[in-house]
Simulated scan of single mutants.
Amino acid sequence: MFIQPWDAALDRSEWQTWIAGGHDFGLLSVNGLLGHSPTVVPTHFVSGDDELLIHLARPNPVWPSIEYDPNVTFTVIGDYAFVPGPWRAKPGTAPTDGVPTSYYAAVEFTCQAHVVDDPQEKAELLRRQMAHFQPDGDHALIAVDQPPYGRMLPGIRGLRLEVTDVRAKFKYDDHKPVEHRVAAADRLTARGQGLDVPTARQQLRRLDRMGTWSP
């Protein structure tokens, strides 16, 4: 992932806060076996202390590749929008001379994958996931010897992704003048399609923290 200086995370807490704010679905990318393409798996995840926790079905074709090479990447993308060229035209130029772009946030985790097959450890992994996704506890007890989860545990394998590096990108034209960024956020909010509104929020949040960008 190419990151311009003005698109980089301002600090570690910025991307951590963004992830914690409901961005808990991403893409697991695994190196393919010799002669095969890489495998990409969309899945929910739970973040912990320098690790990500996921589980996948045992028949998933990703397992041989992970066991062959545990170096994996997990990518989370959100708050994205297409920005048409006329919105980015420089003052005094024709609107059609503006060059379009994409706004988005992305966090890329480089990880070492550790397969979790022990039944008790898989149950604990699921309990941690459920504590995140169903914090009200409105689910059956997750235990090896109790239904419904007990009988389902053999059908899954857990993954503990040990995070070795994190690269975060917040691409919202932060190198442009303040007036340009405010106008873009206003236009996104007015258009209101897809993720336009959260994209505008990210742009204004960065503006409040950064102001006029400088090296």
Rank of each mutant, 00 (worst) to 15 (best):
F2L: 09
F2G: 10
W6C: 10
A8Y: 09
A8R: 15
A9C: 08
D11Y: 00
R12P: 02
R12H: 13
Q16S: 07
Q16Y: 01
W18Q: 11
I19D: 04
A20K: 11
D24Y: 03
S29L: 12
N31M: 03
L33K: 06
L34A: 15
G35M: 05
G35R: 03
G35C: 05
G35H: 05
S37M: 04
S37W: 04
V40R: 15
T43L: 15
H44R: 09
G48M: 02
D50W: 00
D50A: 10
H55P: 04
P59C: 10
V62D: 02
W63T: 08
S65D: 12
D69R: 13
D69S: 14
P70I: 05
P70C: 08
V72K: 10
V72W: 05
V72R: 10
F74Y: 15
F74E: 14
T75V: 13
T75Y: 05
F82S: 12
V83M: 10
V83I: 15
A89K: 05
A94L: 10
A94Q: 12
G98D: 06
V99N: 05
P100W: 03
T101M: 12
Y104F: 14
Y104C: 10
F109C: 02
A113L: 05
V116W: 01
E121S: 15
E121N: 13
K122Q: 08
L125R: 12
R127H: 02
Q129I: 05
Q129M: 14
M130N: 09
A131E: 12
A131P: 00
Q134M: 11
P135R: 04
D136R: 14
L141A: 14
I142V: 09
V144S: 11
Q146M: 07
P148A: 06
P148C: 07
G150A: 03
M152D: 05
L153S: 07
I156C: 08
E162V: 07
V163S: 14
T164I: 14
T164G: 15
V166F: 08
V166R: 08
K169C: 14
F170M: 13
Y172L: 05
Y172I: 04
P177G: 03
V178P: 00
V178D: 03
V178K: 13
R181V: 03
A183R: 12
R187K: 15
L188G: 10
T189L: 06
R191E: 00
G192A: 10
Q193H: 13
Q193A: 14
D196T: 05
D196M: 04
V197A: 13
P198R: 11
P198D: 06
T199Y: 03
A200D: 01
R205T: 14
R206S: 01
L207P: 08
D208W: 04
M210T: 11
M210E: 12
T212V: 14
S214C: 00
S214H: 12
P215I: 07
